[in-house]
Simulated assay, not measured.
Amino acid sequence: MRQRNPFVTCAAIAVYLFLYIPLVVVAIFSFNDSRLNAEWVGFTLKWYRQLAANDAMLQAAANSLIIAGCAAVMAGVLGTFAGVALHRFRQKWLTALVLGPVAMPDILIGVSLLLTFMLMNISLGMVSIILAHVSFCIGFVALSVQSRMAGMDDSLLEAARDLGATPWQSFRLVTLPLLAPGIIAGMMMAFTLSIDDFVVTFFTAGVGSSTLPLEIYSMVKIAVTP
């Protein structure tokens, strides 16, 4: 049995501490009875009571969850087909088309989508936000699926075809189960990116379709409680 490298173990622990200690501190200080939160004053639940009574914030959070869920599902379906196409055809123009939104700045995507929605006479709202999020999430799902396809054994598909399976049957019964981890990972990434997005949502959101990042930003401009 190979022994673990103590340096690697210590480095891994240090990275996880660096990532999670700030989150733990924020969680602890959410119970702090201080508006400035600069030092610990005492334990309180009043900030959570204020949050529970804030209908605008709760509605924005619900909108974010709905948008992120729809974007993850739609990007998962479209990104799966895009990832399979990237692996099989290996065309440079196809790679640039699918992965372009991944490399483009958010503000450029937001402005481009806003102009597109205006030209297509699509009203800004929940639908426009979902379509916008799907457009930049597809590339991340496609990357995950493409990397999964690269590690697959193509002889499995050939064996399925030799046994009489149709192209759809071989994809549904062989390819899709093998791609499931990559698809799920891509959908989780899409969900995270969607629920956290601000710039693209800022350009494509309409009246009454505020998300959690937009709502927090609008509160920070005036005054926001802990």
Rank of each mutant, 00 (worst) to 15 (best):
V199F: 01
M188H: 00
L179N: 12
L178G: 09
R4Q: 14
F117E: 03
I183W: 00
L124T: 01
A11L: 15
A82E: 06
V73P: 06
L179T: 12
M104G: 02
V141P: 03
V102W: 04
I28G: 00
L94G: 03
L173P: 00
F43L: 15
F81L: 10
L78P: 00
M1G: 14
V24D: 00
L113N: 13
A82N: 05
D55L: 07
D55K: 09
A11E: 06
N121R: 15
S34R: 03
F198W: 04
L115M: 15
P167K: 13
L17S: 08
F89S: 07
A14G: 14
T192L: 12
M189V: 14
P6C: 11
N37F: 02
I21A: 14
A52C: 06
W40S: 11
L51M: 15
F202H: 08
A52I: 10
M126T: 07
G208L: 03
V207L: 12
V84E: 06
L113I: 06
G42R: 13
F203M: 03
V200Q: 06
W93Q: 08
L58C: 07
I184G: 01
Q146C: 12
W168T: 11
M57C: 08
G79T: 07
P181D: 13
G182P: 05
D154E: 15
C137G: 05
V174K: 11
H133N: 09
A103M: 15
G110M: 05
A150H: 04
F171G: 01
L212V: 02
R35L: 13
Q169A: 14
P213L: 09
S218A: 15
F191V: 06
I107D: 05
S210L: 07
I28F: 12
S155K: 08
Y20H: 07
L51C: 08
G79Y: 08
A205V: 12
L214D: 04
I138A: 06
H87F: 14
P226R: 11
L97Q: 09
Y48C: 01
A52T: 07
F43N: 04
P177F: 09
A82K: 10
R2Y: 10
S34G: 06
F202I: 02
Y16P: 00
V141Q: 03
S170D: 10
D197C: 08
G76P: 04
A150G: 01
R4F: 15
V15T: 10
H87V: 04
E158P: 02
W40G: 10
P177M: 11
S144V: 00
M74L: 15
L212W: 06
V84L: 10
Q50M: 13
K46D: 11
I67R: 05
K221E: 13
V224E: 14
I129H: 05
G69H: 05
G76A: 06
L212E: 01
Y16K: 00
